[in-house]
Computed example of a mutant assay.
Amino acid sequence: MVQLHKNLDKLKALDLDVDTYIISSDSPEEQEMLYNEIERVLGESLPIISDPDLNMIDHMGMKNGQVAHRGYGLLDENGNVVFQTKNDHWGEEIEQTLSEIKEEYQNMK
């Protein structure tokens, strides 16, 4: 959880004009437990979008059979996928992750 807190701080430090969400196929009840635990430990959390049918996950190109790939991506204001990256280790590689997000965001302008 400490690493997650540091990663959230680094993401905020990019100061991008975007909304940030966690998209998960977990049930709303499971997501609520995760949200509450993150908030309890860190004092804040991110909104979680419930996608049990993998519709948004598929739209993002992150569907892997009946589960989602781990990773991150960016949608424009019209819901078009700007980019997505499948990466189980995005949090461990946070500097590379943030660099890619920032570069793709700047390319949108």
Score class of each variant (00 low, 15 high):
K6S: 11
V2S: 13
E32G: 04
V82E: 01
H5K: 11
N107P: 05
I22W: 03
E44R: 13
V81H: 01
V41P: 00
D9M: 06
H89N: 14
E93F: 02
Q106L: 14
L75R: 08
F83V: 02
G43Y: 12
L98F: 02
F83M: 03
P28Y: 04
Y72T: 09
K6T: 07
A68M: 11
E32M: 11
L46N: 03
G91K: 11
L98A: 04
D9K: 15
N55R: 11
E100M: 09
D51N: 02
V81Y: 09
D51Q: 00
K6A: 12
N78D: 10
D26Y: 05
V18F: 00
N107S: 07
M60K: 02
L98H: 04
H89K: 14
K109L: 14
K102H: 14
G79I: 05
D88G: 04
I22C: 07
G61P: 07
D17W: 08
H69S: 02
K12T: 08
V67I: 06
D19M: 10
M108W: 13
P47H: 09
L98N: 03
E103Y: 01
V2K: 14
V82P: 05
P47N: 02
D88V: 06
D53N: 12
H89W: 09
I101E: 06
E77M: 11
Q96L: 11
L34Y: 15
E30K: 15
N7H: 11
G73W: 13
S99M: 13
S24N: 08
E29W: 15
M1Q: 11
Q66V: 14
N107F: 04
Y105W: 13
E32C: 02
I49N: 04
G61Q: 05
N64G: 03
P52Q: 14
M1S: 09
L11M: 07
G73N: 08
K12N: 11
D53I: 05
K109I: 13
K6P: 00
H5C: 07
I22P: 08
Q66H: 09
E30W: 14
L4T: 13
I23W: 10
G73V: 03
E37I: 02
L16C: 00
V2W: 11
E29A: 15
S45L: 03
R70H: 10
V67A: 13
S45D: 03
V2D: 13
L46P: 07
R70F: 10
G73C: 06
L16D: 01
V67T: 10
N36D: 14
S24G: 02
E39A: 15
K63G: 02
F83T: 05
V67Q: 14
G65Y: 05
A13G: 06
N80I: 03
M62C: 11
E95H: 04
N107I: 00
P52E: 10
L42Y: 12
D76H: 01
M62D: 10
I23L: 08
L46M: 07
E92G: 09
Q106T: 10
S50P: 00
I38K: 12
I48Y: 07
V81E: 00
H89V: 10
E103F: 04
N36A: 15
Y35L: 12
S45Y: 05
I22V: 07
R70I: 01
G73D: 03
M56E: 10
S25H: 15
Q31S: 14
L4R: 13
L4Y: 09
D19W: 12
E104P: 02
G73F: 05
G43R: 08
T85I: 07
L74A: 08
A68L: 08
I22R: 00
M1R: 01
Q84E: 00
L42G: 12
